[in-house]
Amino acid sequence: MQVRGLRTVLGRKTIFDGVDLDIPRGKVTAVMGPSGCGKTTLLRHLTGQRRPDAGSIRIDGMDVTGLSRQALFELRERIGYLFQNSALLTDYDVFENVAFPLRQHLRLPEEIIRNIVLTKLEAVGLRGAAGLMASELSGGMMRRVALARAIIRDPMLILYDEPFVGLDPIALNQVLRLIRTLNDTLGVTSILVAHEFSAVARVADLVYLLAGGKIVAHGPPQALRDDPSPWTRQFFGGEADGPVPFQYPARDYAADLGFAADHPSAPSAAARQAAATTRAAEPRA
């Protein structure tokens, strides 16, 4: 997969300003970055859910940005996508959720569907939960059911949107192990977006750091941890302020409070004097 010159503007905010990515086949690639930097938007671009304003995205030789809806659907049949909130169909039980893509696209005997679904559920450790409804599952179990659904048709590419959010240490380890095992045994290409570097470092072969609309660093996890650039130091060091500012962009603080003399809403000198006199005359509590 190759992304070149990706540019996206939402409203007045530039999300991507010339992003280039090379995703190696058969590897786990992580895209990391601060909240709101556009990680999920990037996944939406990669799968054609949203078209960028400029740039190209090539998957297996096809430019996703120019595909028709029909061609996109054909491509998506070869892609597994794990949503941040799992996005299980709440009307169906675990078995039917995992069987859903098979029933929609293939005309298979019920026996074969059952075997495939149970195989995938066994791979994620939830064969015994096949009869449970989505509402009866914990967050980690939902994530694993969604993963079984994502791999039900043996995709060439799996995209994980924030797979570690809200998981306890046990569920986190289970998901980490699954991502690595599935990638190695199925030979798929995996892309995951996440914040948690400690988790990403255990599973990713390559990490891209996205900030300010650009890729500011990339490389193997260990190399990125030691990278001296201010972006990587702030992100991996968890510093509150730096190239990613603590404050959301705003106009001058003093002017906002009405203290700057040149601000139209600032009180006049006479009014300030009168207010000070009033405050001085008030009894202290």
């Binding site: 859910q49 998506r76 892609i79 996508y81 941040q84 909130n85 709440t90 893509p101 696209h105």
Partner: peptide, 22 residues
């Protein structure tokens, strides 16, 4: 509306199932 809010419609799109038809 809840299917939209919980990404179930987006999930169908990603599974190459047209939510309008389904």
């Amino acid at each position: 509306g809840l299917m939209r809010a919980t990404d179930q419609l987006a999930a169908m799109e990603m599974m190459a199932v047209d939510p309008i038809a389904y």
